[in-house]
Write a protein that binds this DNA or RNA. Sequence first.
DNA 1: CTAGGTGCAAAAGGTTTGCGGTTAA
DNA 2: TTAACCGCAAACCTTTTGCACCTAG
Lengths: 139, 139
Amino acid sequence: MTSPVTPHDTLTRKLADEGMRFTRQREVVYEAVLNQRDHPTADEVYARVRSDVAGISLATVYNTLETLVQCNLVKQVNFERESTRYCPNLKEHAHFYDTQTGRIYDVDLNNGLVEQLRENLPEGFEAAQIEINYRGRTA
Amino acid sequence: MTSPVTPHDTLTRKLADEGMRFTRQREVVYEAVLNQRDHPTADEVYARVRSDVAGISLATVYNTLETLVQCNLVKQVNFERESTRYCPNLKEHAHFYDTQTGRIYDVDLNNGLVEQLRENLPEGFEAAQIEINYRGRTA
DNA sequence: CTAGGTGCAAAAGGTTTGCGGTTAA
DNA sequence: TTAACCGCAAACCTTTTGCACCTAG
């Protein structure tokens, strides 16, 4: 039987791919985003990991999150000019911002929707990424 | 024959609707966004209007742009955490960010696309706005 | 051993605000 | 006349950076 691929393994491998080292800080920050998939800000991640790594600094959290983005382990999510949030969902998906609570939800995209959006572009425009952000309220 | 509705008229009326005054600063800032529809930042607007209103301040430009947003004369456009840009196109449309030049283009939306995006939402999610941002390059 | 990573504090950018003087209505 | 507005400078908030020390490989 094959053993499951742990976040630890994934992290180590992706870091190595980029010629970067495995550190405790990176492990803990990655898990903070991965375990609670609630799109935390850097500040929120900082609050979560302070108990795990005594003395970790906010700057390190910012730098580490940036590292995880480079390694394609998390993605940045921005709404207006609010603090950047971090999302470990790597599938193509949209975000829904609940204007009542400030919470952000992942929204799967129906078949063909992304293709239709791409076809919507005029001649000569080639989109590498398409970002879809809903804002509204939940029942 | 009816005379055309000038930006001046529109501005005066929309300001009055909100109980706000017409001022030279507001007129000039509005025209700076309206005439060159290139999604300027506050800084860029500031650069444009300094020759029109001697002594206008950057803070006033920021405050004025915020006023125009409240009056529904322009909309804010954000890409990542770059400076907020201002768009006088009030029709529902998407934005294309050219990663080569940093320029932003308005993109009209095909019939039914917005409806499909709205239908894509799960039960209980009610979107007030849907934002579509393309990033890529132009031929 | 040593290139890369971390913590700290300071700096950088973008935007907002408090206040005294000015102005549209 | 007077509430709203403006210019200025200082404050604010998020994020980045320089540097001395530390550590994974």
